[in-house]
Simulated assay, not measured.
Amino acid sequence: MSVTYEYDMRNPKANLRPVFLAPHYDDVALSCGGTVALLAERGLRPVIITCFGGEPPATLSAFARFQHQWRGLDDHNALAVRRQEERSAATLLGAEPLWLGLPDAIYRGDHYQSDAELFGAIHPDEWSLLDELEQALTSLLDKAGIQPAWYAVPLGIGNHVDHQLVRLLGQRLRAHGQVVWSYEDFPYVLLPGGEDQRHALVTQYCEQTPWMIELSAEHLERRIAAIACYESQLAVIFRDLGDPAEAVKRAAQRVRQGQLIERLWLLRSRVKEHSEAIAHVPWLLSQPEH
């Protein structure tokens, strides 16, 4: 038996909005853009907040310059290009795009100067970033007048340090009593070892039964079209996966034959069990799926 989670649109708290936290400007569209499109279609006004979307320093490291060059980005307008890509993608998905002021890992001093470091352990000097992330998020939500219904964060497949930090932020929000879901990081989940790492991360951090979100072909096409907006990133992201549209379809079709599925897993809380957490969110209904 599995469990599905559905919306009760009659609930008077419909002003609450689902908030998707992205490490970088493309991560939500890549990983769960179909879900965002579905929520928007239902009138739930999803929000995408890029956590590491701030200004780079005036002087870039050699590693940061290499990352720009690899993607055909100019050092002086890379952020403007990325933000415009994000706006275009969010428009196609029906979401509101926002971002925090913290910079991407490649811009944070000399902590991450190689792929091995970028996809390795969080630098010891960066644990204070969790406090900064939480404060910046709270401030942005208050300023924008957004009341989160729930959050979604990456599982951290691929081990990018920014993805790890945003998952840790999700765990902190969960410890504060918020409902926080985790999405599987695309494209990393399709790369060799990705499924094994997804299973290990779900086992470690989440309830085992996922929220299985069935998409229509139109929802998936919106995800694909949104991903195409990130023109500066496509050649790098899909260099080992082939055609972007086909790779996204493979990811959506691999869960259940004949259906297009995206999955979210509920982060565990040390305070409440899974059933208690759902009971405290009145417009999320839990029912058995036969």
Rank of each mutant, 00 (worst) to 15 (best):
T203M: 04
A58P: 00
R250S: 10
L260I: 03
I213P: 10
L118A: 07
L141E: 12
S31Y: 05
V281K: 02
S88K: 15
T35Q: 15
A40D: 11
R270T: 13
L266D: 04
S139T: 05
K13W: 07
A58F: 03
G33A: 07
E207H: 13
S216M: 03
Q253A: 14
Q197L: 06
I261L: 12
Y183L: 00
G33D: 09
P57R: 14
L190D: 13
L129K: 05
E184R: 00
V236R: 02
G145P: 13
H163E: 02
E289F: 07
L133I: 07
A200D: 08
L140P: 00
L220E: 01
E86V: 04
I237H: 01
H163Q: 08
Y188S: 06
L264T: 09
G94L: 06
T35K: 08
Y112V: 08
R174C: 09
R250G: 05
N15S: 15
P154A: 13
L234I: 15
G170Y: 04
L190P: 00
P244K: 12
V19G: 01
S128M: 08
G43W: 07
S275G: 01
L30E: 01
L39N: 06
Y205A: 09
Q257A: 13
T203E: 10
E96T: 14
L73T: 11
A121N: 05
C206R: 11
V189I: 12
D131H: 02
Q171N: 07
E195H: 04
V36P: 15
S275C: 00
F238E: 02
P154T: 12
L140A: 12
V3I: 14
V180E: 04
G258M: 08
L260G: 02
V166C: 12
G145F: 06
E126H: 09
I106G: 02
D196L: 10
P103T: 12
N77A: 04
Q233T: 10
D115K: 10
D131S: 09
W211K: 08
F52H: 08
E85P: 00
G43D: 00
R10K: 04
G258D: 06
P288F: 11
H76K: 15
V202K: 07
N15Q: 14
E6G: 15
H280S: 07
A90P: 00
C32M: 06
V179N: 01
P282W: 14
E262Y: 05
W150D: 08
A58L: 10
E276S: 14
L73W: 09
E289W: 07
R83S: 05
S216H: 13
V236T: 05
V166P: 02
R270N: 11
R256I: 12
H111Y: 04
A279G: 10
L137C: 00
Q147V: 15
G194P: 01
P46W: 00
M9T: 15
A121E: 15
A149C: 02
L191Y: 06
R222C: 11
R71F: 03
L38V: 02
L92K: 12
G145L: 13
C206P: 11
